[in-house]
């Protein structure tokens, strides 16, 4: 069901808050379109801290690998990333469908350059993709009386259980299958 309890504004506010707390900067200074790595200077431990904060704030589990690694896992080695660690035409097309037309995505770019493209907006998009899958009913008691106290974590109004969203990996896997069925990006690759 559509999740009207957690708004886009709240998602962006929580992303800003997580970034600000981890990186010790003021939330209002964060440009949602800047690179988290190059612009905000986040390190890998920071990524983990930020993601754990967001998981805790929203009660979700985010994905555990890059989009293109899901492709390789599902469709085979070399489909998205070649032996030189460069991304294929099909992979570049898929990234554009996923991220939108952000600058820098092109076939032949190195796979380890992709994390540099991630912005606070992309993190918020990722959270929104999970949060829009609020289940119709509570997984514990079957009631459909969701509520939220803080605008981030949704709980059952009948029994108090936290809403159980599908995890990020499941949703990415399903998305790749839908896109491939529709666009056949990797079929001939």
């Amino acid at each position: 069901m559509a999740n009207t309890l957690v708004t886009r504004d709240k998602i962006e506010a929580e992303v800003r808050a997580a970034l600000a707390a981890t990186l010790r900067i003021e939330p209002e200074t964060i440009d949602m379109d800047t690179s988290v790595v190059n612009g905000l200077q986040a390190t890998s431990i920071d990524f983990l801290d930020i993601n754990f904060r967001l998981e805790s704030a929203f009660g979700v589990q985010v994905q555990t690998q890059l989009l293109l690694d899901h492709v390789e896992e599902q469709l085979g080695d070399g489909k998205a990333i070649d032996a030189n660690n460069q991304i294929t035409e099909a992979a570049a097309s898929l990234l554009k469908l996923y991220f939108g037309e952000i600058e820098g995505i092109k076939a032949g770019m190195y796979a380890d350059e992709i994390p540099m493209l991630v912005t606070p907006k992309i993190i918020a998009d990722g959270m929104e993709r999970i949060l829009e899958h609020l289940p119709d009913t509570c997984q514990d008691c079957g009631a459909s009386e969701w509520k939220t106290e803080d605008g981030a974590k949704v709980v059952c109004g009948a029994c108090g259980a936290e809403a159980q969203y599908p995890d990020g990996d499941t949703l990415v896997t399903e998305w790749i299958q839908q896109v491939e069925a529709e666009h056949k990006l990797f079929a001939g690759a």
Partner: peptide, 8 residues
């Protein structure tokens, strides 16, 4: 590279 969005 590690994914900045996710616990890799």
């Amino acid at each position: 590279g590690l994914t900045p969005f996710g616990v890799d």
